[in-house]
């Protein structure tokens, strides 16, 4: 459960190291989360959303983040995205400490409907970040078309987002992120509001885009099956005050298929395991040495 690669705290050998996700030797991680703590200061008092999170993402990895509701998944994502400052600890991207939203990163928000601009048509929504980044017009158009095609929305570029169904809006938000060609893509429960069939399609879409574009993806979900199906790794967060409860390698074949992969015995095993972990987390179980 604990990572072998965490450097033990030299000062206090008797105390076991805080539970942490998998970390990589210096210089090998693309994204590195170190001892991140986030406390919201509100009028009603302080809320500790995240206590101590440590893990690394290698370049090109697709990892899923699961945890009970309110365990601080969105908070963590916003800290990684540079939208919120960490109270303690830090996040580095390519060795650079994140202090604001990095250029190479795109976020698909949990509230995707509200994150699209209703006054812009679909294609303009996708194009805006590129326009702002100064991408030349011809290339911009090409990238927008390509992204819309990839998510299967090339038929509605002139529609407004609010004319589309929830699942289609979600795909617009994904297309916008993909057209931006980020190195790191953060997705926050992006499929929470879509029906099962659309969800399955979008999962395969994310996997395909991830492979084709070589992005590093951190995907928050509360759907256990989804977390196992999607990527190569599942990071389970404990309940609040949040630490990493488990960092699990998904050793399923790389070729995923909605029917076949999900009916593998190993898939069932993994699902049982993650399910148990989340139940534990919900009951307030703390991993050994959790602060």
């Amino acid at each position: 459960m604990q990572s072998d690669a965490t450097t033990p705290v030299a000062a206090a050998p008797a105390v076991p190291p805080a539970p942490a996700g998998r970390t990589l030797p210096d210089g090998q991680a693309l994204l590195s989360v170190r001892g991140v703590k986030k406390v919201y200061h509100t009028d009603g008092g302080d809320i500790e959303a995240v206590r101590n999170l440590t893990f690394d993402l290698a370049r090109g990895e697709l990892a899923c983040l699961v945890g009970p509701s309110g365990s601080g998944k969105t908070t963590l994502l916003k800290v990684i995205a540079g939208l919120l400052g960490a109270t303690e600890g830090q996040v580095t991207l390519d060795g650079q400490k994140i202090t604001g939203p990095p250029k190479k990163m795109a976020v698909v928000f949990q509230e995707y409907g509200r994150s699209l601009f209703p006054w812009l048509r679909v294609a303009d929504n996708v194009e805006l970040p590129l326009k702002n980044a100064g991408v030349p017009k011809a290339e911009r158009k090409a990238r927008v078309n390509e992204a819309l095609e990839a998510v299967g929305l090339d038929a509605v570029p002139r529609s407004y987002p609010w004319q589309l169904s929830g699942g289609m809006q979600q795909r617009v938000a994904i297309a916008r992120a993909v057209a931006y060609q980020p190195e790191v893509l953060l997705m926050d429960e992006p499929f929470a509001a879509v029906d099962a069939q659309t969800r399955a399609d979008l999962e395969d879409l994310v996997r395909r885009l991830w492979k084709d574009l070589g992005m590093t993806v951190l995907f928050v979900t509360h759907d256990i099956d989804e977390s196992i199906y999607l990527g190569g790794r599942v990071i389970v967060l404990s309940s609040s005050p949040t630490v990493v409860q488990e960092d699990l390698v998904i050793d399923l074949p790389d070729e995923r298929d909605q029917l076949e992969t999900r009916s593998l015995p190993r898939f069932t095993e993994l699902r049982h395991h993650v399910y148990e972990q989340i139940q534990l987390a919900k009951r307030g179980h703390r991993p050994d040495g959790a602060p």
Binding site: L83, G100, A106, V107, R114, L128, N132
Partner: peptide
């Protein structure tokens, strides 16, 4: 959420006002 969208895509200053 719109503000965070703008920020995360680096849309700031005058561009943010305009768009």
């Amino acid at each position: 959420v719109q503000n965070e969208t703008s920020r995360s895509y680096g849309i700031s200053g005058f561009a943010r006002i305009r768009y």
